[in-house]
Design a protein around this nucleic acid. Structure first.
Lengths: 204, 204
DNA sequence: TTGACATATGACAACATGTCATGTAATATC
DNA sequence: GATATTACATGACATGTTGTCATATGTCAA
C-alpha cells in the first residue's frame, strides 16, 4: 500500500504519478520497470518516490487496483441481466473483460501484467469474485445467482464453483494474450470449456 | 535455452552450475536472484556465465526443466493404475505432485517459482500435459484414458477437458503454497472441485 | 610448430535501488 | 508576530546489479 503521504497529495499530482507509473508498466513488466523512468516522467525526485511508496511493486499495485476497481460492479450487473444464470454471466463477463483488457489504452499494461502474472497480481485481479476478505461482497453476489438451476447441495458449494470458474477464466485470458488469440477464437474456446463445467465430463 | 558451450561442459561442472543456480533460485525468486551469487557458488567467472546462458531466466529454466523432467512418465503410469479413470488419475497425480513440490529438497525452489508464476513458468510446468508441440506425447496419453466413462462427442473434447483440468490443478497447487495449506486440506479442496467437473453444475 | 578455434576471465561502463542529511513549506502553539 | 513542530522535497551517494569486451589460456588438427 502506498504511504499516507501519497494520499495526502493534491489530486493532480497523484494522477500525474499514477499516469507515469502506468506508462512505465505498459512499456515493460513489473520486474523490468525502472523507478528512474517513473520519477522522470512524473517530475518528482527519487526521495519523494520513496516517501510515497514502499517500492516498485507498491506503485504497480496502485495502478492495477485503480484499473480493476472500475469493474467492481460489473459482474453483479451482468448477473441481474441474465436473471442469475451463472454460466451465461461468466461468458458475458469474459467478453467484457477481454474487451477491457485489450482496448488500445489498456492492452500493453495488461499484457505485461498477465504474461508475468504472479500469484499476488492474480489475487488482486480476481479479488472481486473471491470469498476471502470479501464476505459481504460475496454474499451480495450469491444472492443474485439463480440457485434453482444449479446442482448443489449446500450453499458452500457455490464457493467451490467459483474456485473452479475463476482460475479457468483467468487462464483463458492469459492464454488469449500469450497466443494473441482473436476475440472470437478466445470466446469460443472459453465457451467450450464452460460447457464442460455445465454438464460434467462423466456419464451418469 | 542454454548455449551449446554449456552442454559441451564436463558433466560435473554442469552439475555444479545447476546446483548453484538451484540454490540461488531456492533462496529468492527469479527476479530477486543474483547472478553474482550463482557464479560465486559455482566457482565460475561472470564471463563464463554469459557464455553458457543468455541471461538469468535461461539458467532458471534449466533448473526447472531438470526438475520437471523427472515427472515425465508419472501421469501415464497413474492412468494405467486407475485403468484410465481420468479424474481418479488427476487426484492421485495431484497428491504425487504436492508431495514432490513440498518435500524438503524442493519446497523453497517451487515456492519461489509458484508464487511468482509467470505464464512461461506455468507453460514449462504443464508442458507434459499439453497438446501443443507434444502431439505425439499427448496422443500417448489419450490412448490410456477410458473414454467409455466420459461424456464426450468428438475426440477433440478430450483436449478441452485438459484445458479445464490443467489450470485448475495449477491454481490449486499455487494456492496450497500461498496459504500454506496442509496436504490433507489441499487434496480435500481439490477433490471437491473435481467433483464439480465430474458431474457438472447444472441440473439436467 | 603453427594456426584456428573453443573456452575462461575479471575489469568496466552503465544503470538500479534505497537511504539520508539537509532543505523548504505548512501548520500549530504560545 | 514569533517560534516550535510537523510534513514534504530533494539529489548526492553507497552499494549492488547486469551484460560486454579485450585479452589470456587451453585444445586439437594439420
Amino acid at each position: 500500500m502506498p504511504k499516507q503521504t501519497f494520499f495526502n497529495l493534491p489530486e493532480d499530482k497523484k494522477e500525474k504519478i499514477i499516469a507515469a507509473a502506468r506508462k512505465e508498466f505498459s512499456r515493460v513488466s513489473l520486474y523490468e520497470a525502472s523507478i528512474s523512468n517513473i520519477i522522470k516522467d512524473a517530475d518528482i525526485s527519487r526521495g519523494s518516490f520513496y516517501q510515497y511508496f514502499e517500492n516498485k511493486e507498491d506503485a504497480f499495485f496502485l495502478v492495477l487496483e485503480d484499473l480493476i476497481n472500475i469493474n467492481e460492479k460489473k459482474f453483479k450487473d451482468i448477473l441481474k441481466e441474465t436473471q442469475g444464470d451463472l454460466i451465461k454471466s461468466f461468458v458475458i463477463f469474459y467478453e467484457y473483460l477481454l474487451q477491457f483488457f485489450t482496448c488500445e489504452k489498456n492492452k500493453n499494461f495488461f499484457k505485461n501484467a498477465f504474461l508475468n502474472m504472479s500469484h499476488r497480481i492474480e489475487q488482486t485481479m480476481t479479488s472481486g469474485l473471491k470469498k476471502k476478505n470479501n464476505s459481504e461482497k460475496f454474499k451480495g453476489i450469491i444472492k443474485l445467482i439463480d440457485i434453482s438451476k444449479l446442482n448443489i447441495k449446500i450453499n458452500e458449494d457455490i464457493h467451490t464453483i467459483f474456485r473452479v470458474l475463476v482460475p479457468l477464466t483467468t487462464s483463458n485470458i492469459v492464454e488469449s494474450f500469450a497466443k494473441q488469440l482473436s476475440f472470437e477464437k478466445s470466446v469460443e474456446s472459453y465457451k467450450k470449456q464452460l460447457d464442460i463445467i455445465k454438464n460434467g465430463i462423466y456419464k451418469n
